[in-house]
Amino acid sequence: MITLGWLYTLGGAMFAAYAVLSARDRLNPRRWGNAAFWGLLSLSFLGGHMLGDIGNGVLVLCLVGLAGFGAIGRGAPETTNDAEREAHSRRLGNRLFLPALIIPATAFFGTLAYNYTPFGQSGLFDPKWVTLILLGTGALAAVAVTMVWLKPPAIAPLQEGRRLIDSIGWAVVLPQMLAALGAVFALAGVGDIIGALAGHAIPEGNRFVAVAIYALGMALFTMIMGNAFAAFPVMAAAIGVPLLIKGYGGDAAVIGAVGMLAGFCGTLMTPMAANFNIVPAALLDLKDRNGVIKAQIGTALPLLACNLLLIYFLAFR
Rank of each mutant, 00 (worst) to 15 (best):
R162Y: 07
M14A: 14
A71W: 13
G217P: 08
I102Q: 02
G259R: 10
R30V: 06
A100P: 00
Q121W: 01
T299S: 08
V209L: 12
R90N: 11
W32E: 00
F125P: 02
M147A: 14
W129C: 04
L134S: 10
A236E: 03
F15W: 12
G123F: 06
G195Y: 04
I202R: 02
G182A: 08
A238H: 04
I194T: 02
F15T: 12
A17R: 00
G250C: 09
T79S: 14
A262S: 15
K246G: 05
A141F: 11
D53N: 04
L98E: 04
A274Y: 06
A212N: 08
G110R: 09
L46C: 09
L187D: 11
N34V: 10
L304S: 07
A35W: 00
P175H: 05
A105Q: 00
G120C: 05
F108E: 01
L164E: 01
P242I: 04
A188D: 09
V130W: 03
N227Q: 10
L164H: 00
I72H: 04
L283I: 15
I155Q: 04
N94D: 14
R24I: 06
G240R: 06
P302M: 12
G189K: 02
E84Y: 08
A35F: 02
G70I: 06
L7V: 15
I278V: 14
R26G: 00
D82M: 08
E204A: 13
L286C: 08
P242S: 04
L27T: 12
T111F: 02
F313Y: 14
R289P: 07
I168R: 05
N28I: 05
G33Y: 09
G68R: 07
A76H: 11
T131A: 13
G240I: 05
G120H: 06
G68F: 03
Y214I: 10
L98P: 05
G52P: 07
A186Q: 03
G263L: 09
T111K: 02
L150P: 05
F276Y: 14
D53P: 00
L304R: 05
F276C: 10
A171D: 12
V292G: 03
M147L: 15
L7I: 15
L150R: 15
N115K: 13
F125T: 00
G199T: 04
M177G: 09
K294T: 10
C265N: 07
P175W: 01
A215Q: 05
R207H: 08
F264W: 13
F97V: 13
R317Q: 10
F185M: 14
P302T: 12
F229T: 08
F45C: 11
E86Y: 11
M14N: 05
R91P: 02
R26I: 01
K246M: 13
P29V: 06
I239K: 06
